[in-house]
Amino acid sequence: MTSCHVFEDPIKKVAIFGGTHGNELTGVFLVKHWLENGAEIQRTGIEVKPFITNPRAVKNCTRYIDCDLNRVFDPENLGKKMSEDLPYEVRRAQEINHLFGPKDSEDSCDVIFDLHNTTSNMGCTLILEDSRNDFLIQMFHYIQTSLAPLPCYVYLIDHPSLKYATTRSIAKYPVGIEVGPQPQGILRADILNQMRKIIKHALDFIYNFNKGKEFPPCTIEVYKIMEKVDYPRNENGEITAIIHPDLQDQDWKPLHPGDPVFITLDGETIPLGGDWTVYPVFINEAAYYEKKEAFAKTTKLTLTAKRLCSSLH
């Protein structure tokens, strides 16, 4: 039954990124803490590096200085000639690519965990970039099982136009970790404890995998991005309606055609159009007002991973 197996090389290099958005404080302070006291994230045989990716934004407690660092790891930006005139985050992306990449090369980091918070009521969320990545499907399954009964959702951003060039995408196995709800610029202990647990289980998974543990075939439920929905706006671009109270905080729950989505300042309800039930995520995320995203519509899928074991065994 060798054909059912996926053999992968052992994982040697792991990085944990915090502060990719400087006002998402859980990752900022976990990484700062681990830079001083790293015992918690060390595993025998694996090099685990905590790293602050956007130190200037962290210092200013702002999402970014010139542009969103989590959108500039594309070949064009990474290939630009280094110059003081480039936006700070593009220069920083090139430095990070140099330290942990280069992207799509043999030398790049094996796994990067990138720690984020959202103001949306999304709980523990793992972000998957590629639906055929058996190793990460197995890892996410392991994390979900370990966290239960605490729910942990998987958001799949594999999409021809909506996928974006994330900071973690320089790794062979990029993992986005998003925990909410937490306002920008504050640190909640409950959210911090949850994110810390996710990292612990993820590192345990890698350690077990390296040791030769076999992971039987598994399936996970994922929410795949379909469409971003903007706020209703007037001709000046100003928002004319806000998220309806019935939709607020209802991330991951089914939203049916005709259900309320927005409410105008005059009290008029705007319902969901279309013919399909969708699963909304990132509902009323503070950082997405400027990205013209009131929420994202997803569809629910099941992904299957083959039996996994390390190629050393």
Partner: peptide, 8 residues
């Protein structure tokens, strides 16, 4: 949260 407008 800062930067968020909740209907309630």
């Amino acid at each position: 949260p800062q930067g968020v407008l909740r209907a309630d």
